[in-house]
Amino acid sequence: MTDTSRRSYTKHVPDIRLITHYAEKTDSIIHRVNPWTKAAMLFFIVALVTVVMDFLLLAVIYVFALGFYAAAKLPLKLLVGWYFLPLVFVLTLVIMFVFTEPGTEIARLTIGTLVIAVTDNGLILMAKLVVRALAVVTFSLAVFMTISYKHVVYIARRLMPGPLATMFLLTYRFLYVTSDEITDLLDAVHSKNGNMVRGMLKQTKMFAGIFAHAFIHAFDRADRVSKAMEARGFTGDFPIVERVSAPRPREIAVVGALTVFLVLALVSRYSGMEGG
């Protein structure tokens, strides 16, 4: 279970069981960092990649995120696969900008009367967005894969309004069952020699059946779970098993340093000191 998960049907989205395994069973210097500190650091990383405009600084933030991930002893090989979708999202958004952004032409292709030219500013725009996205994805996964469930419960209860926290935590708990259900149905299709490469209509119908089953079973399960919860005196709040203590002074210092960086980045950006 250290490198891959049997239950996962895609290499592009992290499997919830694998995430939980690393959060609950692995130990590293990052696992021992206070969850509040990690949550605060994630906030500052997101804020910094949004505010900072300089490519070099963005690259430094990405390297920091990657170092944080590696220090948590998380699988680097799998991370490459998990980069696929964020890259697809960024590239589909900005691919046209590579050709249309005003700037110096780097390459030009002429097909009859059609001229396609790649500009330096277009490439810089794309590179910046890719680095920004990957920095946050890497850091977010590192945080999510190093905070145990009991601490997630506590943080969710403290940060979200009651009904939202309850729904969030119920979703978290149900996710294991529903993802297993869908992968079981896919296993069943495979075991009956169900060829996954068919016409579009057949594929759509087959997957509709799988998802419909998942929804129907989810509703049945929701009925049973809600009755069981009410029978046990559920009042709408998840019990807190363990409180998250306050961060240590040196961790507060790290968050303080990130705050200073963010303030400097904001001042630099809005006073026009930073170059593009």
């Binding site: 499997d15 979703t171 809600s226």
Partner: peptide, 27 residues
């Protein structure tokens, strides 16, 4: 909102997330 409705919505969200983890081999 009842506990049942809340669990039903949470189940819907979990199916939505789990469904996203599956790649549909079209296009």
């Amino acid at each position: 909102v009842s506990t049942r409705k809340m669990t039903v919505a949470a189940m819907c969200a979990s199916v939505g997330i789990a469904a996203f983890m599956v790649t549909i081999p079209v296009f």
